[in-house]
Amino acid sequence: MTDTNYHRTDALTDADVRGAMEPTGPEDHVERDLDPAFHELTPLQPSSEPYTEQQLAQLNADSDAIIARYPVKRSALLPMLHLVQSIDGYVTGRGVTFCAEKLDLTDADVAGVATFYTQYKRHPNGEYTVGVCTNTLCAIMGGDLIFDAVSEHLGIGHDETTEDGKVTLERVECNAACDYAPVVMANWEFVDNQTPESAIRLVDDLRAGKEVKPTRGPNRVCTFKQVSRTLAGFPDGLADEGVGAGGPSLEGLKLAKEKGWHAPGSAGEVSEQDQAQASGAGANPQPGEEFSSADSDGSVPPAKEAE
């Protein structure tokens, strides 16, 4: 096995290593340039084709709804950029101009914001973003091997899209699911405890148009555009689908139940007033003793009595 298997080969070329060794010549930076269409620092793509009247009407109505959520309208910019992606599949020049006009900003203001955040795409995104966590913990638990396997299988690198336009592969940073490592995100839904084989199956299924069910998420992974609309703050009705918690989230609770551990006082609580009343009634709950509200008649807080 060569060392390249364990490295972010596209982010870390031989030129980088040489650059690191002899950080002097500008020629090192020339060598770093990748295909400009896919480089992560590619500027936003201009677009000459205007929105249709229907698209514009919808954009205006949705943007007004977003703006109404905030006391100051500029706050609507991030959700509006998600909204642009829900129509265009990435942040287009026309989307930037639309946001700028709507919020009384310059195109440069909007472009400056759009290029700051990694979820805003600078070139057409695939129908599904597949993000492999390669931050330290997931990388070591297998994320690096997963990324390399999927990358080789699809023939694309970081922030590149398959020719059929289905899958954009990304390395993602820690996505707050470390207890499920290694983690893969499919359009920002959790696909937990992955292996190279399961991740390859995932991208194959997505490309084949099969329904893919995330581990913790709705019954199926939505498209990039659909998810972008949700992120603009428009509910898609899927909140009640999927689990509340996966296995690792429940490990502590499960153990506590097995062992009979609970927080002091447990269910019904022992406010000072309750304790005074309980003492008056000659029933002194011991610290740590089960003390349910059902047992504490007469010690219900006044606010609750009002119900």
Partner: peptide, 10 residues
């Protein structure tokens, strides 16, 4: 954070 869409739904 925007990268956890199901949490946003919830």
């Amino acid at each position: 954070r925007g990268e956890t869409v199901h949490v946003y739904r919830r």
